[in-house]
Simulated assay, not measured.
Amino acid sequence: MFPIFWILLLLPLVSAQTYHWGPCPTPSVQPNFSLQQYLGTWYEIAKLPAFFERGKCIQADYTLRGDGTIRVLNSQFYKGKVRTVEGTAVVQDPKKPAKLGVSFSYFTPYSPYWVLSTDYVSGAVVYSCTDVLRIFHVDYAWILGRSRFLPVEEVEYARQLLAKENIDTFKMSVTDQTGCD
């Protein structure tokens, strides 16, 4: 009875998300990932629904801190204002540097932030998944660009890469990057 209670309690939260039955998939990540090359500004081109991202002009800035953690500064234009949130990313296993963890609160554990593919200069594909009692999982995926717009072929390549890794992109939507500073 206890797990059913929690599932029912969590369903409204995940209703705006992409969720599927069973545990998270385990996609391949970028081989020989270079964190130094990945740092900098990335613009959100497309994403699976995320309750914390509802605006436009969404971007993320990654900078290395002196203690070796990564400062993550996400921003979006929402309800007439630029809204930012700062978090921390860490490389959780030096042998798998493309599998980062990210947290936006001292009170929450690190969530997966896996770089599936990047050329560092144009685009990147990022995936995150959270298991809920291994009964179902909530997917997040982002197609990112170093500029606010990517060629259609690059976006299609990213979608195909996600699909090849058994990540459902049906609910993926394009992020509005027009009229941004």
Rank of each mutant, 00 (worst) to 15 (best):
L39Y: 07
W42Y: 07
Y43N: 12
I45G: 05
I45H: 04
I45N: 06
K47P: 08
P49N: 09
A50T: 15
A50C: 13
E53A: 14
K56G: 04
C57M: 08
C57F: 09
C57R: 06
I58C: 06
L64M: 13
D67Y: 04
G68I: 01
I70D: 03
R71L: 14
V72T: 03
V72W: 06
L73V: 11
S75A: 11
S75W: 04
S75N: 05
K79I: 02
G80Q: 06
A89I: 09
A89K: 04
V90D: 04
V91K: 00
V91W: 00
P94M: 04
K95N: 10
K96S: 08
K96G: 00
P97F: 01
P97I: 01
A98W: 06
K99W: 08
K99Q: 15
K99G: 00
L100K: 05
G101M: 10
Y106A: 14
P112E: 13
V115P: 07
V115H: 02
V115Q: 02
C129S: 08
C129I: 13
T130F: 02
D131K: 09
Y140T: 14
A141E: 11
W142I: 05
R148F: 06
L150I: 02
V152M: 01
E153T: 13
E154K: 15
A158Q: 01
A158S: 14
R159L: 12
R159Q: 12
L162D: 12
A163N: 15
M172S: 02
